[in-house]
Amino acid sequence: MLSNGDWLALWVSIQLAFVTVLLLLLICTPLAWVMARRRWPGQALLEATLALPLVLPPSVLGFYLLLLLGPNGPGGWIGDLAGLRSLAFSFPGLVIGSVVYSLPFVLQPLKNAIANLEEDQLAMAAVCGAGPLDRFCSLVFPQARLGYLSAAMLGFAHTLGEFGVVLMIGGSLPGETRVASVALYEHVEAGDYANAHRLALVLLVASLLMLWGLFRWQRQRTSGSWL
């Protein structure tokens, strides 16, 4: 049904979303922790900075990211280490862009989940001598797992739907930076509406299924006793 090029674009999108979510869960767990459970000077400023991708146009992010990722910015020497001229127009560059762009969508649900942890249990576990890792694995994660699932799904869906940033820093390289949304945009621009329709339908159905699955799962979990 889809052309090989479109399948490839879809595959790049899925890989990008997967890697981005994995990184974001790792980054956002400690971030959410210090934000939800500590008070310190400068916190509001950091929270505002991390929420910026919610309000900034993707073109602003894309404009700065291109400078940062290019050979004249830090992306140049990081790329050098990996044997690339720069991180712009590369898959790792897109991952960095997506991590920045989707961060608030992962951070927010985690923050809420961590803020609602059972204080008494945590304190008791600490008193009984459970180490931090043990406490995280046996108490925090099970209690916050709904938050983790929401965070992962939102981050995944948001990265899959990413368009503006990729358009500005990607360069539309097949199999590398041409994601599904950009491939669709190019079909429309070129007047190839048959392929545009097919790809758009696939994206629509896939996104709907993903969100439907999330909401169904949430309903089951919150109505049943899962703690």
């Binding site: 291109l66 400078l67 990722l69 004249n72 720069s86 712009a88 358009l167 820093i169 539309s172």
Partner: peptide, 22 residues
């Protein structure tokens, strides 16, 4: 030889001007 595709010549120019493309 890697090629980078821009939306139009305006963005093509921008890619090189920013140094991101050679």
């Amino acid at each position: 030889v890697p090629l980078v595709q821009a939306e139009n010549v305006g963005q093509s120019y921008h890619f090189a001007h920013s140094g991101a493309a050679a």
